[in-house]
């Protein structure tokens, strides 16, 4: 009983702390200026605290990662869950958990030394540290969660459903995509939302490949700063209003995550009815 409540307390605690520490700066800067200001210059003599560039970057970056990561992950999951030989499946599942277990800084490191120069050369841009690099790294990083959760959901589909579909003359592949996938859709939706959450919340890897300049994300090759990296990159040396503004950014990020969770729950509940 008490044990269960600890989790609730944790959530409350986090929420309260974030709100308390996040509100003052927003008050001072003004909500509209803060959320929709296009310029972030926290260390200038006339500091500007507009986080629209961070918000847009996070949204674009996440959307891009989902666009690439979800189809690949989903297709891989269907194959592994339904078509692959058991041996292949177990080897691949191992590989996927490996991918999930690799620390984000390792992704950042490889991205920094492979992806960033690669983008610079291929697209002939001055700096490869860009939104595109971040999208690719994020897509790779959400891949394992999407694959794993989708496989779990697909594996849990009762065999009776598939037998019934096959007995009606559907081919195995039709069965998997038209019966098994819909039957597992809540799990797959959860996988996608998890991916969104992971992408929007990732800090370190993105910090290492995105260039970390507070630009508006006008192009894929722009060096950009995410909500997460905005917090971590200045936290170490910040003070006063700047520091408070960082907490406000964290609050915005937190609200995003809560929104995502709420959406997920909404869908899952509707699904049950």
């Amino acid at each position: 009983m008490l044990l269960g409540l600890i989790t609730v307390c944790c959530v409350l605690l986090i929420t309260v702390y974030l709100v308390i520490s996040g509100i003052p700066a927003i008050r001072e800067i003004g909500l509209v200026n803060f959320l929709f200001g296009k310029e972030w210059a926290s260390t200038a003599s006339d500091p500007k605290y507009g986080i629209l560039p961070f918000i847009l970057t996070s949204v674009y970056g996440t959307a891009g990662a989902i666009l690439i990561g979800v189809p690949v992950g989903f297709m891989t999951a269907v194959y592994l869950s339904k078509l692959a030989y058991p041996k292949v499946k177990s080897v691949m599942q191992f590989a996927v958990s490996l991918l999930a277990g690799i620390p984000s800084v390792v992704y950042g490191l490889v991205g920094m030394l492979v992806l960033v120069p690669g983008i610079r050369k291929i697209f002939n841009v001055p700096d490869g540290a860009s939104l595109l690099a971040a999208i690719i790294v994020l897509a790779i990083m959400i891949l394992p969660s999407i694959i794993k959760m989708s496989i779990t959901a697909l594996d849990a589909v009762p065999k009776e459903y598939e037998d019934a579909s096959l007995a009606l003359g559907a081919t195995p592949i039709e069965t998997y995509f038209k019966v098994s996938v819909p039957a597992a859709k809540s799990g797959i939706a959860a996988a996608v939302v998890l991916g969104v959450g992971r992408a929007i919340g990732e800090a370190m890897a993105v910090m290492m490949v995105a260039g970390n300049v507070p630009n508006m994300p006008d192009s894929l090759f722009q060096s950009v700063r995410f909500l997460t990296t905005a917090v971590s990159s200045e936290m170490a040396y910040s003070s006063g209003l700047q520091r408070q503004a960082l907490f406000s950014i964290a609050l915005v990020l937190f609200l995003f995550i809560m929104l995502i969770n709420a959406t997920l729950n909404f869908f899952l509940k509707r699904e049950k009815e």
């Binding site: 989790t7 609730v8 944790c10 800090a203 907490f247 937190f254 995550i257 809560m258 969770n261």
Partner: peptide
């Protein structure tokens, strides 16, 4: 139970940078 499970779910969705921040404060 619903509230607790919802809380746990929320907790697992929070990015680690926010944990870091709250951990720092707390």
């Amino acid at each position: 139970v619903g509230i607790i499970e919802y809380a746990a779910e929320t907790l697992s969705g929070i990015p680690s940078i926010i944990y870091g921040l709250v951990g720092m404060l707390l």
